[in-house]
Nucleic acid binder design. Structure first.
Lengths: 117, 117
DNA sequence: TCCATAGATAGACTGTCGTCGATGCGTACG
DNA sequence: CGTACGCATCGACGACAGTCTATCTATGGA
Protein backbone atom coordinates (compact mmCIF):
# COMPACT_ATOMS: atom_id res chain seq x y z
CA UNK A 1 0.00 0.00 0.00
CA UNK A 2 2.02 2.91 1.26
CA UNK A 3 -0.03 6.03 1.40
CA UNK A 4 -3.37 6.75 3.00
CA UNK A 5 -6.35 5.49 1.08
CA UNK A 6 -8.32 8.67 1.58
CA UNK A 7 -5.58 11.05 0.54
CA UNK A 8 -5.63 13.79 -2.03
CA UNK A 9 -8.40 14.12 -4.55
CA UNK A 10 -6.47 15.96 -7.28
CA UNK A 11 -7.70 18.51 -9.70
CA UNK A 12 -7.69 18.04 -13.42
CA UNK A 13 -4.28 17.84 -15.05
CA UNK A 14 -3.20 20.81 -17.04
CA UNK A 15 -2.55 20.29 -20.71
CA UNK A 16 -0.12 22.71 -22.22
CA UNK A 17 0.21 23.32 -25.90
CA UNK A 18 3.75 22.56 -27.01
CA UNK A 19 5.99 22.56 -30.04
CA UNK A 20 6.71 19.32 -31.92
CA UNK A 21 6.57 17.49 -28.64
CA UNK A 22 7.70 14.06 -27.63
CA UNK A 23 5.56 11.69 -25.67
CA UNK A 24 6.91 12.88 -22.35
CA UNK A 25 5.33 16.29 -22.46
CA UNK A 26 1.58 16.80 -22.73
CA UNK A 27 0.38 15.96 -26.21
CA UNK A 28 -1.89 18.32 -28.07
CA UNK A 29 -5.00 16.79 -29.53
CA UNK A 30 -3.75 17.52 -33.03
CA UNK A 31 -0.30 16.07 -32.49
CA UNK A 32 -1.82 13.00 -30.87
CA UNK A 33 -3.90 12.43 -33.99
CA UNK A 34 -0.91 12.76 -36.26
CA UNK A 35 1.20 10.41 -34.17
CA UNK A 36 -1.64 7.90 -33.95
CA UNK A 37 -1.97 7.85 -37.74
CA UNK A 38 1.76 7.26 -38.04
CA UNK A 39 1.72 4.36 -35.62
CA UNK A 40 -1.35 2.93 -37.34
CA UNK A 41 0.79 2.55 -40.45
CA UNK A 42 3.16 0.38 -38.44
CA UNK A 43 0.33 -1.55 -36.80
CA UNK A 44 0.12 -4.19 -39.50
CA UNK A 45 2.33 -7.27 -39.80
CA UNK A 46 2.38 -7.16 -43.59
CA UNK A 47 3.61 -3.57 -43.63
CA UNK A 48 6.24 -4.28 -40.98
CA UNK A 49 7.55 -7.19 -43.00
CA UNK A 50 7.46 -5.05 -46.12
CA UNK A 51 9.67 -2.48 -44.42
CA UNK A 52 11.92 -5.21 -43.14
CA UNK A 53 12.23 -6.77 -46.58
CA UNK A 54 13.05 -3.43 -48.19
CA UNK A 55 15.62 -2.48 -45.56
CA UNK A 56 17.41 -5.77 -45.93
CA UNK A 57 17.02 -5.98 -49.71
CA UNK A 58 20.23 -6.47 -51.74
CA UNK A 59 20.40 -2.99 -53.26
CA UNK A 60 18.24 -1.35 -50.63
CA UNK A 61 15.26 -1.67 -52.89
CA UNK A 62 12.89 -4.25 -54.32
CA UNK A 63 10.09 -4.48 -56.86
CA UNK A 64 6.59 -5.66 -56.07
CA UNK A 65 7.13 -8.98 -57.79
CA UNK A 66 9.80 -9.85 -55.25
CA UNK A 67 7.56 -9.03 -52.30
CA UNK A 68 4.38 -10.90 -53.10
CA UNK A 69 5.67 -14.39 -52.52
CA UNK A 70 7.42 -13.97 -49.16
CA UNK A 71 4.44 -12.09 -47.77
CA UNK A 72 1.93 -14.73 -48.83
CA UNK A 73 -0.58 -12.13 -49.89
CA UNK A 74 -2.19 -11.33 -53.23
CA UNK A 75 -0.48 -8.78 -55.47
CA UNK A 76 -3.26 -6.17 -55.02
CA UNK A 77 -2.98 -6.53 -51.28
CA UNK A 78 0.76 -5.94 -51.41
CA UNK A 79 0.24 -2.92 -53.65
CA UNK A 80 -2.33 -1.64 -51.19
CA UNK A 81 0.11 -1.80 -48.29
CA UNK A 82 2.91 -0.27 -50.35
CA UNK A 83 0.67 2.68 -51.13
CA UNK A 84 -0.05 3.19 -47.44
CA UNK A 85 3.67 3.18 -46.69
CA UNK A 86 4.33 5.63 -49.52
CA UNK A 87 1.58 7.96 -48.37
CA UNK A 88 3.09 7.89 -44.89
CA UNK A 89 6.47 8.82 -46.31
CA UNK A 90 8.13 5.68 -45.02
CA UNK A 91 9.10 4.41 -48.47
CA UNK A 92 9.35 5.79 -51.98
CA UNK A 93 8.66 4.08 -55.30
CA UNK A 94 10.34 4.68 -58.61
CA UNK A 95 9.09 3.25 -61.88
CA UNK A 96 11.82 1.88 -64.10
CA UNK A 97 10.61 0.03 -67.15
CA UNK A 98 7.93 -2.43 -66.31
CA UNK A 99 8.81 -2.56 -62.63
CA UNK A 100 8.39 -0.19 -59.72
CA UNK A 101 11.27 -0.20 -57.28
CA UNK A 102 10.55 0.64 -53.67
CA UNK A 103 13.06 1.67 -51.06
CA UNK A 104 12.77 2.81 -47.45
CA UNK A 105 13.20 6.39 -46.21
CA UNK A 106 15.40 5.99 -43.12
CA UNK A 107 14.94 9.53 -41.80
CA UNK A 108 11.21 9.11 -41.58
CA UNK A 109 11.47 6.03 -39.40
CA UNK A 110 14.08 7.72 -37.22
CA UNK A 111 11.77 10.64 -36.54
CA UNK A 112 9.01 8.26 -35.53
CA UNK A 113 11.35 6.53 -33.13
CA UNK A 114 12.17 9.82 -31.47
CA UNK A 115 8.49 10.37 -30.79
CA UNK A 116 8.70 7.56 -28.26
CA UNK A 117 10.58 9.77 -25.88
CA UNK B 1 16.52 7.03 -63.67
CA UNK B 2 20.07 5.81 -63.50
CA UNK B 3 20.13 2.19 -64.45
CA UNK B 4 18.82 0.30 -67.45
CA UNK B 5 15.10 -0.27 -67.50
CA UNK B 6 15.40 -3.86 -68.58
CA UNK B 7 17.99 -4.87 -66.01
CA UNK B 8 17.92 -7.68 -63.52
CA UNK B 9 14.76 -9.56 -62.68
CA UNK B 10 15.67 -10.66 -59.17
CA UNK B 11 14.70 -13.81 -57.37
CA UNK B 12 12.66 -13.90 -54.20
CA UNK B 13 14.28 -12.41 -51.12
CA UNK B 14 15.40 -14.80 -48.48
CA UNK B 15 13.81 -14.53 -45.08
CA UNK B 16 15.93 -15.71 -42.20
CA UNK B 17 14.58 -16.56 -38.83
CA UNK B 18 16.23 -14.38 -36.21
CA UNK B 19 16.33 -13.72 -32.52
CA UNK B 20 14.45 -10.73 -31.00
CA UNK B 21 15.15 -8.80 -34.14
CA UNK B 22 14.92 -5.14 -34.89
CA UNK B 23 13.26 -3.79 -37.97
CA UNK B 24 16.46 -3.80 -39.96
CA UNK B 25 16.81 -7.54 -40.20
CA UNK B 26 14.18 -9.75 -41.81
CA UNK B 27 11.15 -10.03 -39.57
CA UNK B 28 9.62 -13.40 -38.83
CA UNK B 29 5.90 -13.67 -39.37
CA UNK B 30 5.38 -14.22 -35.66
CA UNK B 31 7.53 -11.29 -34.56
CA UNK B 32 5.82 -9.06 -37.11
CA UNK B 33 2.47 -9.94 -35.58
CA UNK B 34 3.66 -9.17 -32.09
CA UNK B 35 5.19 -5.86 -33.12
CA UNK B 36 2.07 -4.92 -35.07
CA UNK B 37 -0.10 -5.54 -32.02
CA UNK B 38 2.20 -3.35 -29.95
CA UNK B 39 2.06 -0.49 -32.41
CA UNK B 40 -1.71 -0.88 -32.68
CA UNK B 41 -1.89 0.03 -29.02
CA UNK B 42 -0.14 3.30 -29.82
CA UNK B 43 -2.26 3.92 -32.91
CA UNK B 44 -4.97 5.79 -31.07
CA UNK B 45 -4.92 9.47 -30.11
CA UNK B 46 -6.74 8.89 -26.84
CA UNK B 47 -4.23 6.28 -25.71
CA UNK B 48 -1.30 8.46 -26.71
CA UNK B 49 -2.68 11.35 -24.73
CA UNK B 50 -3.35 9.02 -21.82
CA UNK B 51 0.30 7.99 -21.82
CA UNK B 52 1.34 11.59 -22.13
CA UNK B 53 -0.88 12.65 -19.25
CA UNK B 54 0.43 9.88 -17.02
CA UNK B 55 4.07 10.57 -17.82
CA UNK B 56 3.68 14.24 -17.02
CA UNK B 57 1.39 13.74 -14.06
CA UNK B 58 2.46 15.37 -10.76
CA UNK B 59 3.42 12.17 -8.89
CA UNK B 60 3.94 10.08 -12.03
CA UNK B 61 0.45 8.72 -11.65
CA UNK B 62 -3.17 9.71 -11.97
CA UNK B 63 -6.61 8.29 -11.26
CA UNK B 64 -9.32 7.83 -13.85
CA UNK B 65 -11.30 10.77 -12.58
CA UNK B 66 -8.46 13.10 -13.50
CA UNK B 67 -8.23 11.75 -17.04
CA UNK B 68 -11.82 11.82 -18.21
CA UNK B 69 -12.16 15.56 -18.53
CA UNK B 70 -8.97 16.46 -20.44
CA UNK B 71 -9.59 13.62 -22.89
CA UNK B 72 -13.16 14.68 -23.60
CA UNK B 73 -14.36 11.08 -23.63
CA UNK B 74 -16.87 9.21 -21.49
CA UNK B 75 -15.60 7.43 -18.39
CA UNK B 76 -16.25 3.93 -19.86
CA UNK B 77 -14.26 4.88 -22.93
CA UNK B 78 -11.33 6.04 -20.83
CA UNK B 79 -11.47 2.85 -18.77
CA UNK B 80 -11.52 0.87 -22.00
CA UNK B 81 -8.33 2.50 -23.25
CA UNK B 82 -6.65 2.17 -19.89
CA UNK B 83 -7.33 -1.55 -19.95
CA UNK B 84 -5.74 -1.84 -23.39
CA UNK B 85 -2.65 -0.02 -22.16
CA UNK B 86 -2.48 -2.26 -19.09
CA UNK B 87 -2.85 -5.42 -21.16
CA UNK B 88 0.00 -4.20 -23.35
CA UNK B 89 2.16 -3.67 -20.29
CA UNK B 90 2.59 0.03 -20.98
CA UNK B 91 0.97 1.14 -17.73
CA UNK B 92 0.01 -0.42 -14.41
CA UNK B 93 -2.94 0.33 -12.16
CA UNK B 94 -3.12 0.13 -8.41
CA UNK B 95 -6.34 0.37 -6.43
CA UNK B 96 -6.08 2.55 -3.36
CA UNK B 97 -9.33 3.22 -1.58
CA UNK B 98 -12.02 4.26 -4.00
CA UNK B 99 -9.58 5.24 -6.70
CA UNK B 100 -7.36 3.37 -9.10
CA UNK B 101 -4.01 5.00 -9.75
CA UNK B 102 -2.33 4.42 -13.08
CA UNK B 103 1.31 5.00 -13.87
CA UNK B 104 3.44 4.36 -16.95
CA UNK B 105 6.02 1.58 -17.31
CA UNK B 106 9.01 3.34 -18.89
CA UNK B 107 10.96 0.20 -19.78
CA UNK B 108 8.15 -1.10 -21.90
CA UNK B 109 8.05 2.01 -24.05
CA UNK B 110 11.81 2.01 -24.36
CA UNK B 111 11.82 -1.52 -25.73
CA UNK B 112 9.21 -0.55 -28.29
CA UNK B 113 11.34 2.36 -29.38
CA UNK B 114 14.29 0.06 -29.93
CA UNK B 115 12.20 -2.02 -32.29
CA UNK B 116 12.35 0.88 -34.73
CA UNK B 117 15.96 0.14 -35.49
C1' DT C 1 0.70 -3.97 -84.29
C1' DC C 2 -0.36 -7.37 -81.00
C1' DC C 3 0.26 -9.77 -76.92
C1' DA C 4 2.31 -10.82 -72.42
C1' DT C 5 3.66 -8.90 -68.14
C1' DA C 6 4.09 -5.56 -63.86
C1' DG C 7 1.54 -3.06 -61.15
C1' DA C 8 -2.48 -0.03 -59.75
C1' DT C 9 -7.39 0.61 -59.10
C1' DA C 10 -12.34 -0.59 -58.14
C1' DG C 11 -15.78 -2.81 -55.64
C1' DA C 12 -17.46 -6.04 -52.24
C1' DC C 13 -17.18 -8.56 -48.10
C1' DT C 14 -15.83 -9.42 -43.32
C1' DG C 15 -13.92 -8.65 -39.00
C1' DT C 16 -12.35 -5.46 -35.70
C1' DC C 17 -12.25 -1.00 -33.16
C1' DG C 18 -13.87 3.25 -30.81
C1' DT C 19 -17.67 5.05 -28.73
C1' DC C 20 -21.67 5.40 -25.91
C1' DG C 21 -25.54 4.55 -22.29
C1' DA C 22 -26.86 1.32 -18.93
C1' DT C 23 -25.59 -1.48 -15.35
C1' DG C 24 -22.81 -4.04 -11.87
C1' DC C 25 -19.32 -4.15 -8.14
C1' DG C 26 -16.59 -2.58 -4.43
C1' DT C 27 -15.31 1.11 -1.16
C1' DA C 28 -15.87 4.95 2.04
C1' DC C 29 -18.65 7.99 4.68
C1' DG C 30 -22.49 9.34 7.61
C1' DC D 1 -26.63 -0.21 7.36
C1' DG D 2 -27.74 2.52 3.65
C1' DT D 3 -26.20 5.66 0.24
C1' DA D 4 -23.09 8.10 -2.77
C1' DC D 5 -19.06 7.64 -5.44
C1' DG D 6 -15.17 5.61 -8.48
C1' DC D 7 -14.41 2.50 -11.80
C1' DA D 8 -15.16 -1.78 -14.62
C1' DT D 9 -18.11 -4.47 -17.58
C1' DC D 10 -21.85 -5.28 -20.99
C1' DG D 11 -24.26 -4.82 -25.22
C1' DA D 12 -25.07 -2.22 -29.27
C1' DC D 13 -23.98 0.53 -33.11
C1' DG D 14 -21.36 2.94 -36.75
C1' DA D 15 -16.97 3.42 -38.99
C1' DC D 16 -12.98 1.72 -40.82
C1' DA D 17 -9.22 -1.56 -42.30
C1' DG D 18 -7.48 -5.82 -44.59
C1' DT D 19 -8.38 -9.00 -47.97
C1' DC D 20 -9.89 -10.88 -52.21
C1' DT D 21 -11.38 -11.16 -57.39
C1' DA D 22 -11.94 -8.69 -61.42
C1' DT D 23 -10.43 -5.19 -64.25
C1' DC D 24 -7.68 -1.38 -66.04
C1' DT D 25 -3.24 0.98 -67.49
C1' DA D 26 1.33 1.08 -69.14
C1' DT D 27 5.48 -0.91 -70.75
C1' DG D 28 8.39 -4.02 -73.57
C1' DG D 29 9.24 -7.73 -76.77
C1' DA D 30 8.15 -10.31 -80.98
Amino acid sequence: MGRSTTARRPVALVQEECCPAVLSSPLSEERAGTLARDFAVLADPVRLRLLSLLVSAPAGEACVCELVEPLDRSQPTVSHHLKILVDAGLIVGEKRGRWVWYRPVPDRLARLREALD
